[in-house]
Design a protein around this nucleic acid. Sequence first.
DNA 1: CTGTTAGCGCCTTCAT
DNA 2: ATGAAGGCGCTAACAG
Lengths: 341, 341
Amino acid sequence: MKKNKLTLKDVAQQLGVSTATISNAFNRPDQLSASRRQEILTACERIGYHGPNKAAQILRKGHSNIVALVLADSIEYIVSDPVASTLIKGVSSVLQAHGKHLLLYAGDAQSIRDVVDFVDGFICYGAPRNVQLAEEINQQDKPVVTVDFNLPGRPAINIDNQQAAYDIARKALNKDDKVAILGLRLIDAPTTCRIYDSPLFEEDRSISHRRLDGYLRAIEEAGLTISNDWIWHIPESGGKYSRQAAQEVLNSAPRPTTILCMSDIIALEVLQCALSMGIKVPQELKITGFDGIDEAARTRPYLTTVCQSSVDKGKAAAQLLLAGDTNSQQLPYVLKKGETC
Amino acid sequence: MKKNKLTLKDVAQQLGVSTATISNAFNRPDQLSASRRQEILTACERIGYHGPNKAAQILRKGHSNIVALVLADSIEYIVSDPVASTLIKGVSSVLQAHGKHLLLYAGDAQSIRDVVDFVDGFICYGAPRNVQLAEEINQQDKPVVTVDFNLPGRPAINIDNQQAAYDIARKALNKDDKVAILGLRLIDAPTTCRIYDSPLFEEDRSISHRRLDGYLRAIEEAGLTISNDWIWHIPESGGKYSRQAAQEVLNSAPRPTTILCMSDIIALEVLQCALSMGIKVPQELKITGFDGIDEAARTRPYLTTVCQSSVDKGKAAAQLLLAGDTNSQQLPYVLKKGETC
DNA sequence: CTGTTAGCGCCTTCAT
DNA sequence: ATGAAGGCGCTAACAG
C-alpha cells in the first residue's frame, strides 16, 4: 500500500477543476462562493488531501508561521531554569493563539543561518554569552524582540531591574547590617568566586549589573558599605554553583546579617544551607531573592523576593513581535514580603 | 540601502561559475577540489552570501533538520513541569549535537498538519489528552518515537512503571499501615477528588495506571488493603490541585500513616502540608514520591522517591529517532532512600 | 571537475 | 469563477 502524497495538481485533476480553485478554496475563501468552497473542501477530505504542502508554501509565500525563541544559553540550561521555562510558557500561549509555532533555538552564531531563511522572527531571551550571535541576529532583517537585554534598534521587554533591586534591598537593610551579595554572572568566570577586582562582564547590557547598581545604591543610602570581597559571582543559578556560594558566604567571618541574592534559586540554597547550620532566619540572617518562582512559594519559610511575571514577559514579547510593534516595553514588578527578612 | 537577498544564481553569475558549483561547494565537498571549494566559499563570504536558502532546500530535499517534540498537554503545562522540561533538555542536547532543530509542538489534532510536511519526525511525550492527535500522528509516515506511552507500531521509551511503583511501595509499607495513594490523572475529571468507583481513564496506555498496579500489588503483598476512597485523583501536578489533595488526605480520619504519591511535586506538597500541621515525618507519616526531580533534593527532609532520568529519556528518544531505529527501549530507574520513609 | 536542465509544490497575476 | 504560465531558490541527474 503505497502512500503517494497527493499534490494540489493531482487533486485539481481528479476533481476536474483548476489548481487555482483548489488553492483558493484553502487560502482565499473570498475568491469563490461559500458553497463551492465547501464542496471542494469535503471532496479533498474524502480523497485524503489535507491541504497545500507547507514546505512549498514556505518557499512560495516567504513565511512559515514559525517563530524562533533564541536562548542565551543552551536549551539544556534554560529549560531547567524556572524563570526561563516560565517565559516559554508565555511566549507559546500567545503564539498558539495566533496559530504560530515555536522553534526553540539554542545555537552558536554560525547556525543562526540554519533558520533565518524560513523563520518569521526572533524572540531573544537574555544576552547571549556569545557576542557574535547577537550581532548575527541583529544584522538579519526579520523582526526581533529581546527580553531581559537590549539589542541596538530592536524593541525590548524588561522590568526596571535597578529600581527593583534597590527597593528590595532598601526594605531588607538596617543600620549595622553586614551585607553580602550573591550575584549572577558578574564576571567572566566559570566558577563560583568573589569578584574582588575582576573586570565586570558585559557591564552595559547585563541585567545583573543593573541589579547590582540597585543594591549598591540601597546600601549606600542605608549608610552601609560593601567591598568587592563580599560580592560573589555565580556562573549559573542551577547545579552546584549556588550551593558552593551559600556555603562560602555562610562560613565567612564575620558572617553577614543580610544576603542579597540575584535569583530565587540562589536564595533558596542559602536558606537551606543556613537552616541546616542552625542559623535562625530572619533573626540572625536576612535573605532576599529575585524573580518570584513557584518553588519559592512552596518552601517554608517563604522567601522575600521581587516578583516579576515571566509569563507576562513572554506574552508581551510574542505580542510585540506578531504586531510588528517596535516600541520597547517596561513591565511592572512587585515586592513580595516573605518570612526571610 | 536596499538589502536584496542574493540567490545562488546571482552568486554563480557574479563569480562566473555555474550554479551547480556553488551548490556543491556548500553541500557536497567531494564534488570539487578542496582549494576550489575554499576559494568559492571565501568569495561568497566576501559578497555576503551565507549559503543556499533553507526554505528552498526544505522543499527541494524533502527534509528540514527540524524535529517536533509533541507534548501531551499545552506547552504551558509541560514547561512548568520539571519532569517534562528535563526531558526537553535531553532531547535538545542530542538534536543539537546532530545539527537538528527543535520545534516545540503543542496543538490540537487539526494543526499537526501545519508541520507534518516539513518536519523530519516526531517525538511524543505523554499520551495526548486528545485521542485524535495520537491517531493523526500515527497515520502520517514520518518517523515517530513516543515517551511514557505507546502508539501502535511505533518505538517507545519507558521505564517499568509498574515495577518501580511496586518497589518503592514495598519499601515504604509495614504491617498495620494505613495507606493512601495520591494519583495523577486516574480518572477523567478536572478536579481533585477521590476516585471511588469512577471509570479509570485511558487505562491501558497511561503510566499512572501502571504505577497504580504496582502500588496495589505491593499493598496486597504487605497484607494490607486499600479501598477506592483512599485513592485520590489529581488532574495535574502543578498549581493548586496537589495542595488540595494534600489537605484533604491529611485531614481525613483515620489519618493515613503512609502516602504513596505519583509525582514528587505532589509528595512535596504533602510534606509541606504535614510539616505545617506539626505531623512528624517519617515517624507519624511516611511519604514517597515519584520521578526524582532536583527540587526534591533541595528540600529538607529529602524525599524518598523513584529516580528516573528524564534527560536520558529525552536523549534516548532523540537518538532512536535520528537513527531510524524502531525498537522500543526500557530505561532503568533507581530507588532513592530519603528521609520521608 | 563543470555546466545545463528539469522539476520539488505551490501561489498569483493575467486573461478568459 | 476558472485556466494557463511563470517563478519562489534550489538540487540532482546527466552530459560534457
